Computed example of a mutant assay.
Amino acid sequence: MLEIKGLSVVFEDFTVLRNINLKLDNQLCVILGPNGSGKTTLLRAISGIIPYKGSIKINGKEVRSAKGVLEYSTNLQEVYTIGNSVWDTAKIIAEIKGGDLKEFTNILDYLNVDRKVIHKPMYKMSSGQRSLVSLALALFTRPQIVTIDEPVENVDVNKRDKVISLLREKVNEGIIVTQQKELIKMLHDNKKEVMVYTIVNGELVEGDKM
């Protein structure tokens, strides 16, 4: 369960997010918003990367104090700098979270990512490779709760359907933030309803307001 209460994020004198409230219990949520609206900032707060006011709890554990919440994962690339290469990073994650490295390489193969790139650090990859590799890193441990930032941004058109299929298969609970409204229909299936919100002027508003 992901529970956010009264969340605000302020940078210097600018309030990026204000009074965000959201509760997910085995639900998938798509959050829309243009560039600069605060979508990625929300995921960074949930991931414990930046300070925030209010409360963010993952399965009852406050993010501020919950170091290494094993049941949570994200595709934010800044969290994957713990190894000299992506493969080193994947091995560390597998050791910590009990993931199967074969699952990691299987996802890369499914997304048609050349395995040679995983022997580089993330910053030496193309933007498209970074998007796909960070998604594989986020999903291969089969986390209970996932946050995904712009899953098809910089991804080749021919691979986007595979990205969506992977998200539908492996993300049961969590948040996907995007500017691509068409993802809502693509993610929806008969088994799971997709909740939709939009960030408007730093506030979370129910429905598609773009």
Rank of each mutant, 00 (worst) to 15 (best):
I31C: 05
K162Q: 15
R44D: 05
M122R: 01
Y52H: 05
N201E: 11
T105I: 01
I96Q: 01
L108Q: 04
E62F: 08
V200L: 11
T141A: 07
G174E: 00
E169H: 12
K170H: 10
M210N: 11
V30D: 07
L132N: 06
I93R: 09
A45T: 04
V86N: 09
T15N: 10
S55G: 13
T198L: 00
L187V: 04
K192H: 14
V69M: 12
N59I: 09
Y52G: 01
Q144G: 08
S47F: 02
L70F: 07
R44T: 09
V146A: 06
V157E: 15
L137C: 00
T40L: 10
V177R: 07
G68E: 04
G207N: 11
D208P: 05
L22S: 04
K53M: 15
I93Y: 08
I4H: 08
V117R: 03
V200P: 10
T81G: 15
T81H: 11
L135Y: 02
K185R: 10
V16Q: 00
M210Q: 02
I50F: 02
L24T: 12
I4N: 03
M195F: 08
V69A: 03
G54C: 14
G174Y: 08
D13M: 13
V117H: 10
D109R: 14
M125D: 03
V63L: 02
K170M: 15
I82M: 03
E173W: 08
Y123H: 08
L204Q: 11
I184H: 09
A138P: 06
T41P: 07
T89G: 01
Q27E: 15
D208C: 14
I31E: 02
L22Y: 06
N172W: 04
N190E: 13
E153G: 07
V30E: 00
Y110R: 09
P51E: 07
K97M: 07
S126L: 03
E153Y: 01
N158F: 08
L108Y: 14
Q27D: 13
D88A: 05
L7P: 04
L42S: 04
K91I: 12
R64Q: 07
G68L: 06
A90V: 13
N26F: 12
